[in-house]
Design a protein around this nucleic acid. Structure first.
Lengths: 185, 185
DNA sequence: GACTCATGCGGACGAGCGTACACATCATGT
DNA sequence: ACATGATGTGTACGCTCGTCCGCATGAGTC
């Protein structure tokens, strides 16, 4: 009797490519771009190593696809929240919620943003992804504010996000609200 | 006649440790933390590979020393500039100059900042370095503004830096000046 | 001048990496 | 039923990496 070789059953898996991109986003969030190796991603997605080079020509391409996906996931949600605010004052209040509830709750999104910025500083493809994200945020804010103000608010959101995520002494919701109230008409 | 082995002359080099830290800062600025390997740093500093492990127990320790040095280099300069401003209005104008002249000119400092943030999200030692930097910036701003406003300005500087460095469409000095004027009393 | 030890040097080791590729499998069109 | 090509799998290659370590050197001390 020959021992049956331990063999993972072959799997027909349409949409694996998409699933790999989604998994890569999570691996980057957990281990950074530096930790998002072919092998780490393959392990996380439970696929063989060779599957990655089949679906993506290079690791860079996979990273880029992951960041692009993340932006395409986050930007529309932000836009939707901006769209539901009836006026500028409500929009500012949405921003307060965005910074207190969402971002503080998910270290994940902060890591993804900052990993993208660092990678974008060195890789033109990712710089384009970042610029797209910034532009979409500004467009969402322009639902309620003029372009110049929208840009200032966008910068403020970025800065407060950083402070909230890395500070020992996070700002209170009241302080954040006060900061945004500078932009009220 | 035996060929003389090509041998770099041994060098007595006091302060090599400091020089290695300084070199590491530059390598990180050029190639990111990911590119700041023992070998890359040794090459840049023109020292043999073994010298790095002699002076630093691990690569992490060297990276941390590099970021610490960078903060100790940048923070006092910012504080000095704030100290020379006679009043709040002048301080805001210093910030405009800081964002238009200094940061746009040196991609270097932007890369170092964003690399630090990304690394800090994962490594407690670097998080402490980042928090120290943030605190010192706020203290500098408190020379002219109350603590709450100082914090808001600090966040705005951070956000505008990001936008200036990564945007296709950088803000004009006039726009930056207008943004900071929201904090004038 | 002899001793000592901090410092400097170069090579080596094992691990993990990106990528390539030969082969297995199966959905699909005929 | 068969052919075909897209998809899935396992393994191997060459490379770079962090770290280690034996040895060389020479400044400082007596």
């Amino acid at each position: 009797m020959t021992a049956a070789p331990v063999r993972r059953p072959r799997r027909h898996d349409p949409g694996r490519r998409d699933r790999l991109v989604a998994t890569t986003v999570e691996v980057i969030a957990q281990a950074g771009v530096v930790g998002a190796t072919h092998r780490a991603i393959a392990r996380a997605a439970d696929v063989p190593l060779g599957s990655l080079t089949y679906h993506f020509a290079s690791l860079d391409e996979l990273h880029t696809a992951a960041f692009t996906r993340h932006v395409d996931d986050v930007a529309p949600r932000f836009d939707e929240r901006m769209a539901t605010a009836p006026d500028g004052a409500a929009a500012l209040e949405v921003l307060v919620g965005h910074l207190t509830d969402d971002l503080l709750a998910s270290h994940r999104d902060f890591v993804l943003a900052v990993e993208l910025y660092a990678a974008a500083a060195r890789r033109p493809a990712l710089r384009a992804v970042t610029q797209d994200w910034m532009l979409r945020s500004r467009r969402s804010l322009e639902r309620h504010f003029d372009p110049v103000t929208a840009r200032e608010i966008d910068a403020m959101v970025e800065g407060l996000t950083l402070h909230s995520a890395l500070s020992t002494d996070p700002m209170t919701p009241a302080q954040i609200r006060a900061a945004f109230s500078r932009f009220a008409r």
